[in-house]
């Protein structure tokens, strides 16, 4: 099976988010970047499938040179090769168009995305990419079992899950459950060494136009100081929830 894994390069989950002085963009100073956590579930499932079925796993990111360490990490975890589309990604539809060009050039059986990236939390790319390609999409995807050119795919829905049947190729939006947390792979020394020599191809963008653009950013207003309530006086809490907070 030939699998393309779309990797989004995002601030580490512990990062303090700050914006530039003119509030126009993320201030990346001192921010550690990682593989988007949802994409890690997708990458791990892709590697498992590769071990069972053979083929290749290619990691792709749309971004400038600063994303290359993240792609190298995907190689260290086990992807065979990587592609960087040399465009600044500012909009999900633009990203999906750039990814679709990579997808069409490679004749993939499966494209694995994350259900959303934790930077702009768009959740748009997987279904947009699938629609451009005319392929089925399942997101959030919490189970994927291929057999003979088709697959049974589990999708999380509000209050439960559903199982779908589809013909490959398809696009997935991965989430925890597709593999378990304990199955996630971390790079080992051999992986890190071999990642240095695995191919990382840089391709020119199609020049897709963004559908939207960020104008400015602010931080949410902070909470006012906490009111501590005596554990023996829960009636006071109930009263405050009713009268002050008006939530019960």
């Amino acid at each position: 099976m030939k699998i393309l894994v779309c990797i989004s390069h995002v601030p580490d989950t512990t990062a303090k988010i700050q914006f530039t002085a003119d509030a126009s963009a993320l201030d990346a100073n001192g921010v550690q970047f990682v593989i988007n956590p949802y994409d890690e579930f997708g990458l791990t499932r892709a590697l498992q499938l590769n071990e069972q079925l053979g083929g290749t796993v290619t990691a792709v990111t749309v971004g400038d040179a600063s994303v290359e360490p993240t792609l190298r990490k995907a190689l260290a975890i086990g992807a065979h090769d990587a592609v960087r589309v040399d465009a600044l990604a500012t909009d999900p539809i633009q990203v999906a168009r750039e990814l679709s060009a990579v997808a069409l050039a490679g004749a993939y059986d499966l494209i694995v995305c994350g259900q959303e990236s934790i930077d702009y939390n768009g959740g748009i790319v997987p279904a947009a990419l699938a629609e451009i390609l005319g392929w089925p999409v399942v997101s959030p995807c919490i189970g994927f079992d291929p057999a003979g050119g088709r697959a049974k795919v589990t999708r999380e829905i509000d209050g439960g899950k559903e199982i779908l049947d589809l013909a490959l190729p398809a696009v997935l939006g991965a989430k925890k459950g597709l593999v378990e947390e304990s199955e996630l792979r971390i790079p080992n020394m051999r992986g890190i060494m071999s990642a240095r020599t695995k191919p990382l191809v840089i391709t020119a963008p199609q020049g897709a136009n963004p559908g939207s653009a960020a104008v400015s950013f602010t931080k949410p207003a902070g909470k006012s100081a906490v009111q501590m309530i005596d554990a023996q006086d829960l009636d006071t809490l109930v009263q405050k929830l009713h009268e002050e907070a008006k939530v019960i």
């Binding site: 768009g122 748009i124 279904a127 947009a128 959030p140």
Partner: peptide, 23 residues
């Protein structure tokens, strides 16, 4: 922004030649 609404947005945007703004 339910599970279905979120799943739909990307495909709908492409199909309707629209921008997609979530959250």
């Amino acid at each position: 922004g339910t599970a279905n609404g979120r799943a739909l947005m990307g495909a709908l945007s492409v199909r309707a030649e629209a921008s997609a703004i979530s959250n």
